[in-house]
Design a protein around this nucleic acid. Sequence first.
DNA 1: GATCCGCTATCTATAAATGG
DNA 2: CCATTTATAGATAGCGGATC
Length: 741
Amino acid sequence: MTLFRATFAVNGDDCHQRQKVGDKSIAPSTWQIRFHLDRVIEGGTYMLRIALAASHVSILKVQVNERAGEAGVEPRVRPDLPFSAGDAKPNQERGQRAFQVGRGGRRAPLFSLLPRCRAPPTPPRHRAPPPPPRRSAPPPPSPAPRAQLPPSPAHPCSTASIPGAASVACRRLPTARQQLLPRPRSPRANCSFPGIRPSRASASFPRIRQRRASFPSSAQHQLHTALRHLLLGSNIINVGERTVAMAPDQMFDLNFEPVDVDGDDADAAIDNLLDTPQGVGQQPEVAHPDEGHASSEDDNAKSAGMTVPTATTASGAVDVEEGVEVISTPNDPCVGMTFDTYEAAKSFYNNYARYKGFSVRTDNSKETKWAGGTSRVKYVCHKAGVNKKKKPAIDGPITEKEVTKKRKRDHIERTKCPSLMAVKFTRSYWVVDNFRAEHNHDLVQKFSLTKFLRSHRDIPPEEKQFIRTLHNCTIKTVRAYQLMCELYGGEQNVPYTVCDCKNLHKSYGVENEEKDMKKTFELFDEMKKQDPDFFYDYTLDKFGRVEHLLWIDGESTKQDQVGTTGSFVDTGISRTAIIIIIILLFIASIFVTDFLLTIAIVILVLILIFVSNAVTVAIRTMRTSILTAKRHIFNMYSTVASRSPTIFIRTVFLIRIISGLFISVFSITLIVVFQRFLIFILRHVSWIVPVLRPALTVEFSNPVTSIVRRRCRNQFLFPLIDLSSTNSNFLDKACCPLNCN
DNA sequence: GATCCGCTATCTATAAATGG
DNA sequence: CCATTTATAGATAGCGGATC
């Protein structure tokens, strides 16, 4: 039962900020969450789950049962739990516990503290042999026979939250039946090793967990320890002589009776709940020899001063401490290894490849009739095969394109690398039927650099959502990436590049590409309701797309000051431009004796000056009077006037040319009257609009290519477009009365 | 006949250079 | 810093020969 879930978009202002009390003093703010429970089980066990994001040194203080101490109300916290020095500061009065995190410069890693959704566990088709006992830590006895019943569908995890927001969620303790089910810890069950016990470094090397393990350990360990004590201390784990925990993937309903589990599982449950990588911030776990190996290559590399991953590290963890990378050691693939899906096989091989320092691609796949689809897939090193032959040079004259300097591109030189892993479908599962480990090229030795390899670059879904949220909050792409670097503890830990963020940002624009016109017209309709004089019209091309768009706001005709307000039609003419034209005419008459040539030169100058000026005025008008929101980070002038010569404003063109010719003969007053007369005609003589529409509308693009139009729409109308999700109030801002401040 | 293997052509998605 | 462009990687399918 999720009681509260906060997001930046909806309630970003609900962040727990300090409050000013009086002039100088600052007091912390407090959230109080009340659980309205219909049925409370006395002596039951309930779990409070907290996600915390802090950018500075922060103190988390949790108080449970504020009525503790009152008559008939028992305090539900254990005041006798020890706290590690530096990890937590107990304040045990009235059941309070306070923890300080983020101290020492390193900030609490964000995502490692957040709950996440897990996919429903896939029942393994091919069961792994029982693992032998560990040497270092013998496993506890199995509490109950598992996997006797088919796994129940996982409850939809509703605890996923937008990063950066606090969330409080509870989960249901497992029922007796659920305890008999295989614990969906990881995709490890999707893989089995013939003759080899499945290790934590096997196919259970989930990418997301591996990535999360790359957070720095110090602050994470602090918070982990703090929350661990909090959970252990607040009657979560102790019921009688047994400890109580929850299944990691089961929702916790406060109205269900809790079920005990053994202490080790409780320990693991909390580890899983906190989503903290094993061993991070603790003594590195010594891996079993079966789990990996420290090859002679590694030793050689070490002796050569290179940083190599070692086998004696935590599972899946990569940390950077004083320049030394620490990662886990996945098992090598071997013939006979089985997987549920070929995607799982690829994921496993990809993780192995990242540890080794190469990238993976799919070489080819074959289909057979009996399999009903792909039956064999071969994954190879990214340097397998040979580079494509370049097309032979075309005889003939050298074109301009060939002369133009070509871009520098990354080039992967394929070396016929023999490394591969082939999996074959055997009617029930996928089995590795071929594996070659040797490479004929150098591998990436430093683990943190492997993120640049193609197959290892990825932005996890939750971080995509986070970046999108940042983007909607006007945080630029590069800034968002810098933030992620900060959260990861350094750019070397971020599993993607700033270029990936840019491309992700670009994809957001593509999503809205088909919505912009609809949103624009909705906005225009709204504006028309508020401004009865507002007028707009449009034409469609043969494909039904908006070809021309015209709008006139009501303020344009009410302003006496020509040239500073108005719409695309009423762009007016600036007095500065008039002076310039008179000077140009004077100069031209001095140096050019031919009358017609003089007129031609003047017309050209007029076009250049007026069109440019008109666009400038129109852009300024749009910026100040219509697009009132703050998300206008685009260079309209360069878009319309400089970069797109196909775009011009016919209306302005005609009006300005005619006006400019009149300037040399008549007074400025006549021009103003003429312009206002045109506008009056446009607004009040209905039949003239369709007649003059082609000349009175703004040409946005060549309808064939639509590139210019898309560019113009993306930049010019983008603030009107992205109305989804977080900026739901943007429309209200944009629809405020025109020329409002 | 089914399968495997190597090679090539074609298409698509995208990384990243480029210009404004 | 952003939108646009474009070369490239990767995916896919097809073909022919070899092998079982």
